[in-house]
Simulated assay, not measured.
Amino acid sequence: MVDRTPGGAGDGDGIRTFPFPVDLSVGGVGIQVGPMGTERTWHAEAPLHRVHRIDFHVVMLFTEGPVRHMIDFAEYEARAGDLLWIRPGQVHRFSRTSEYRGSVLTMQPGFLPRATVEATGLYRYDLPPLLRPDAPQLAALRDALANLRREYEDTETLPLSLHTAILRHSLTAFLLRLAHLAASSAEATRQHADSTFTRFRDAVEGGFATNHSVSAYADSLGYSRRTLVRAVRAATGETPKGFIDKRVVLEAKRLLAHTDMPIGRVGAAVGFPDAANFTKFFHLHTGQTPVVFRAELR
Rank of each mutant, 00 (worst) to 15 (best):
G65A: 14
E64R: 15
G287R: 01
V248D: 03
W85E: 10
Q32T: 09
M107G: 04
R190M: 12
N147D: 04
F282D: 00
F73G: 00
H180N: 08
P136C: 00
L176W: 05
G28A: 11
V22K: 12
G206W: 02
A295E: 13
E99Y: 04
I15P: 01
D55M: 04
H180P: 07
F278K: 11
H69E: 05
R114C: 03
A268Y: 10
L112V: 00
R168P: 05
E296Q: 06
D219G: 13
G102K: 09
R149C: 06
S184H: 13
A193W: 08
S98I: 03
A146C: 02
T210H: 15
A188L: 13
S213I: 14
T259H: 05
G7T: 05
L131A: 00
T41H: 03
A165T: 15
T198V: 13
P129N: 01
A234C: 12
G7Y: 09
F243K: 11
L284P: 00
D3Q: 12
Y123Q: 09
G89S: 03
G28D: 11
H285A: 02
P273T: 05
T210R: 15
F282T: 01
I54V: 15
V232S: 04
D13P: 09
Y123D: 13
D143Y: 06
M36H: 07
S170D: 10
M36W: 02
D13H: 06
D202W: 09
